[in-house]
Amino acid sequence: MARMASLGLFLFVFWLLLSGHYTVWLIGAGLIVSALLAVGAHFLGLADEEGHPVNRLGAGLAYWPWLAVEIIKSSVDVARIILNPKLPIAPEMFETKVGPRTPVGVATYANSITLTPGTITVEVDRERDTFLVHALTRAGADGVRGGEMDRRVTRFEGRAA
């Protein structure tokens, strides 16, 4: 029940942010539609731990700012490489071990690698707990291999790193 209420609240806040209009009619319609969607998602089994991981919100508030800084740093690095006439790239494909175990943790880690400019998660192998990653530079590859993101995502999913 708490997950359904949380999903309804999230949908309503999202509705308000996207709407930009705050008349009584639109707020009421948003409230009703959000509640109906939350109830429907609950009965369809979509408001589960994987579909709406509300219990990870606190951990996300610690992880997402760190990820945003990493994305900005990588963006600057990739821009420098592109603007350099010598184009100092050293593309590399490599496998890396995956620390996270839950579907939310694995998806967060794979997407975090891909969101960071210069690296892309190409393949997820759940049987061997590895990712196949493409990196534009040696430094990008070393950053993934260093394991800091892996440790932070492992903490995000609620396990000790």
Score class of each variant (00 low, 15 high):
residue 145 R to F: 02
residue 111 N to W: 15
residue 65 P to H: 12
residue 85 P to V: 05
residue 64 W to D: 01
residue 161 A to V: 03
residue 51 G to K: 03
residue 113 I to K: 01
residue 36 L to K: 03
residue 5 A to Q: 10
residue 152 R to A: 12
residue 59 A to V: 08
residue 153 V to L: 06
residue 131 F to Q: 00
residue 149 M to G: 04
residue 45 G to N: 15
residue 143 G to K: 11
residue 25 W to Y: 08
residue 37 L to P: 01
residue 161 A to W: 14
residue 23 T to W: 14
residue 14 F to E: 04
residue 122 V to K: 00
residue 106 V to N: 00
residue 141 A to S: 08
residue 111 N to D: 08
residue 29 A to P: 08
residue 131 F to W: 07
residue 58 G to D: 11
residue 59 A to N: 12
residue 129 D to G: 04
residue 3 R to I: 07
residue 55 N to D: 10
residue 95 E to S: 06
residue 49 E to P: 01
residue 126 R to C: 06
residue 91 P to N: 14
residue 149 M to C: 09
residue 12 F to R: 05
residue 60 G to L: 14
residue 91 P to K: 15
residue 37 L to F: 11
residue 95 E to Y: 14
residue 63 Y to S: 00
residue 116 T to A: 08
residue 87 L to P: 00
residue 148 E to F: 02
residue 110 A to C: 06
residue 154 T to Y: 07
residue 134 H to I: 02
residue 38 A to L: 12
residue 54 V to D: 07
residue 47 A to I: 02
residue 160 A to N: 10
residue 20 G to H: 15
residue 136 L to W: 12
residue 124 V to M: 01
residue 143 G to R: 08
residue 37 L to W: 06
residue 1 M to H: 08
residue 99 G to T: 04
residue 36 L to N: 06
residue 115 L to M: 07
residue 67 L to K: 06
residue 61 L to A: 04
residue 26 L to R: 08
residue 63 Y to F: 14
residue 91 P to G: 11
residue 9 L to V: 10
residue 38 A to H: 06
residue 47 A to F: 10
residue 21 H to V: 09
residue 52 H to R: 02
residue 5 A to F: 15
residue 58 G to K: 02
residue 7 L to G: 07
residue 67 L to S: 02
residue 141 A to F: 01
residue 5 A to P: 04
residue 89 I to P: 06
residue 59 A to R: 09
residue 148 E to G: 01
residue 82 I to Y: 14
residue 82 I to T: 10
residue 25 W to R: 08
residue 123 E to T: 03
residue 139 A to M: 10
residue 104 V to C: 04
residue 140 G to E: 06
residue 88 P to K: 12
residue 99 G to C: 02
residue 2 A to T: 09
residue 64 W to Y: 14
residue 126 R to E: 15
residue 70 E to C: 14
residue 20 G to T: 12
residue 130 T to N: 02
residue 122 V to W: 02
residue 91 P to C: 15
residue 119 T to N: 09
residue 40 G to C: 06
residue 36 L to R: 04
residue 8 G to R: 12
residue 4 M to P: 01
residue 51 G to D: 00
residue 46 L to F: 10
residue 47 A to P: 09
residue 132 L to V: 11
residue 12 F to I: 00
residue 58 G to Q: 06
residue 99 G to W: 05
residue 87 L to R: 07
residue 40 G to F: 05
residue 91 P to I: 14
residue 92 E to G: 00
residue 24 V to Y: 12
residue 10 F to A: 09
residue 38 A to Q: 03
residue 24 V to D: 13
residue 158 G to W: 15
residue 46 L to V: 01
